[in-house]
Design a protein around this nucleic acid. Structure first.
Lengths: 250, 250
DNA sequence: GCTCATTTGTTCGTATGTATC
DNA sequence: TGATACATACGAACAAATGAG
């Protein structure tokens, strides 16, 4: 029960609005794990009492966090912590379409190996960890209508995901990687960054995708971030685009 | 002076909240051009009087439109209509970086021709106009540090941009296309859609970019939308990515 | 199916502070 | 400095959705 008197934490008479201070306090509880994705935060009335502010101020703080995507509310139920904002992996870059108004194809994921590898440049630099820190390497194939379309190699810091290699790989077929990471390790994906280029596949990618090395492919490098812009995954992917195309909206 | 009694336009006792109805009325004025980008909308008090609602309701309607990017407010001055939300063309797809944390390179635009062309498939279908409607074709080169990096071909409906070919092409060098379109035609760019693939350049693209036809390039197709998801530009672009890479964040 | 306590959603309004010109 | 406009903080009253009993 959070009936504690937190009022001391809010400072009046400073140029920072009360609602903003409250907002940041709630956000901090989300980021440090006191409030996990899916958890219900205190009700408006509880916040009114424990912080000694008016209902309007509480509403403003909460609605701001809702607009920022950290919380969602259900009338009659409560206010809850949002999980990963990238709801479908397909919206990240695996939505392959023939056309602007085309339909999304049937997509399946096939893991083809997970192992521990030594850290290397540039992965460890992108992940902001020491270059001698080991990594998990996860290789996967994305199949469109049964045909290999994307060959993806993910690198994750071992210290963040200690039990990942013991994790049954069947799980990776059922759901996107970010969903597994959020559920098992409490790391929600907030945003990501991509580098895109056109090139020829290397020997391994050509073999896995079943294409000649003379066929141009999209080469994507991706960094996935959690709260406070902390990177947790570095990914390389080779995408066949000769028939289908990569789609993106923003 | 907008001291008209608009109150009749707001219906009470319906399941649609008052603030939302007001919000939509303001939005409609923006979309149909009654309120142009940069224009100041009526003050809170004027809206309170003319619509007969409380200050809180007015604030909620306006703040929603601010959150959605249609309006911005300056304390002490007023509330204004936002223009194009894509502030820098470089954020769309021309931000070429060597690395995730690299710096943006010096980018210049060089128009190499504008002309009238007959409509064609798929451009006219994407632009949602009849296939016999003519188009403007605008060809441009994007130079990075003086070196050609992107060859871009834009198609615009002639009926929307009647005077575009008379427009001094020097203007296109100074500012992004979307800025010109907003300023001269009052069409703000709200969002866009892209298709991306890797392929070889055609003869023209290879010539313009000064690369061999055997070098893989990114081939982008883009649709730019204004209010209500109305498409106004269809663009094709060839991007050299052998040295630099395409960057994107979202 | 209904009632009731809980929780959020909407609408109202006042008072005061702060920024702009 | 004054008038104007937005920002903050307060809080009341009622509506609507949820879930438990």
């Amino acid at each position: 029960m959070s009936q504690i008197r937190h009022s001391a934490k809010l400072r009046h008479g400073v140029p920072v609005p009360i609602y903003y201070q409250l907002q940041e306090l709630i956000l901090k509880d989300i980021e440090n794990g006191n409030l996990l994705p899916g958890a219900m935060i205190p009700t408006e009335q509880q916040l009114v009492k424990s912080y000694g502010v008016s209902i309007g101020t509480v509403k403003k703080a909460i609605l701001n966090l809702v607009n920022q995507g950290y919380l969602y509310r259900i009338q009659g139920k409560g206010t809850f912590v949002t999980g990963t904002t990238l709801r479908r992996e397909s919206l990240r870059y695996y939505r392959l379409l023939d056309d602007f108004d085309g339909q999304e194809s049937n997509l399946a994921v096939k893991p083809i190996g997970i192992r521990k590898v030594p850290g290397f440049v540039p992965a460890n630099r992108f992940l902001q960890i020491r270059s001698d820190q080991p990594l998990f390497e996860l290789k996967r194939i994305f199949l469109m209508d049964g045909t290999p379309a994307v060959f993806s190699i993910s690198y994750l810091p071992q210290n963040l995901f200690k039990k990942l290699s013991d994790y049954p790989s069947i799980e990776f077929e059922k759901k996107p990687l970010y969903a597994t990471i959020e559920e098992k390790y409490g790391i929600p994906t907030i945003n990501n960054l991509e580098l895109i280029r056109a090139c020829f596949p290397d020997t391994e990618a050509a073999g896995v995708l079943g294409i000649p090395m003379s066929l141009p492919v999209l080469y994507l490098e991706m960094l996935a971030f959690t709260y406070r812009r902390r990177p947790y995954e570095y990914r390389r992917a080779y995408c066949i685009t000769s028939a289908k195309k990569i789609f993106r909206e923003y």
